[in-house]
């Protein structure tokens, strides 16, 4: 194993879990999350020697995941169905509160770009401008996606009071 490969292996071992969690939030599916992360890490591995700021490698992988998702949602035959979700049993295998689970199930039903917008804005704490850059869309599109995402969640769970 070369020094570069060793370096990347250490990065992957250290960051696999948090990056997988991000991938899961982006995809809403454990299998898709693993596929997405493996693919993004493979791209990162190939370009590892050219990534100067290794401290920002997390962001690089995350961007690779978002870009791959963007490639999927622009292709009709890879569009993710949102009306029916696979049955994953009680709690989807997640040990979270019932109200949080209900909200998460609705978030999973959002179109992938809307879900990605929420994840980047409210989990990764990116600004609207940074989110737009990550998604490759305009700031106006980020605002619109966020607005419509919250509107959908409100409509699906009328007891919630989500404020924009």
């Amino acid at each position: 194993m070369t020094e570069t490969e060793l370096d990347f292996s250490e990065f992957m071992a250290a960051r696999w879990a948090p990056l997988y969690r991000t991938a899961y939030l982006l995809t809403g599916d454990q299998h898709d999350a693993e596929e997405l992360l493996q693919s993004a890490l493979a791209r990162t591995c190939v370009k590892w020697s050219s990534i100067r700021a290794k401290g920002a490698a997390d962001a690089y992988v995350r961007r690779a995941m978002v870009h791959q998702l963007a490639g999927r949602w622009r292709r009709p035959f890879r569009e993710l169905a949102t009306s029916e979700l696979p049955d994953r049993g009680h709690g989807g295998g997640l040990d979270v509160r019932a109200d949080q689970l209900a909200l998460w199930e609705e978030i999973r039903r959002l179109p992938p770009r809307m879900r990605a917008t929420l994840v980047l804005r409210y989990v990764e704490d990116l600004t609207e401008e940074a989110t737009a850059r990550e998604l490759g869309v305009s700031v106006g599109s980020v605002k619109s996606q966020t607005h419509h995402a919250l509107k959908r969640l409100r409509a699906a769970l009328p007891d919630l009071e989500l404020q924009p």
């Binding site: 879990a17 997988y20 969690r21 454990q30 693993e34 295998g93 998460w104 409210y122 969640l153």
Partner: peptide, 15 residues
């Protein structure tokens, strides 16, 4: 909303 996403993130089993 943030708390829910954070909780889900923490709860998902990592392969």
């Amino acid at each position: 909303l943030r708390d829910t996403l954070a909780s889900v993130s923490d709860a998902v089993p990592v392969p």
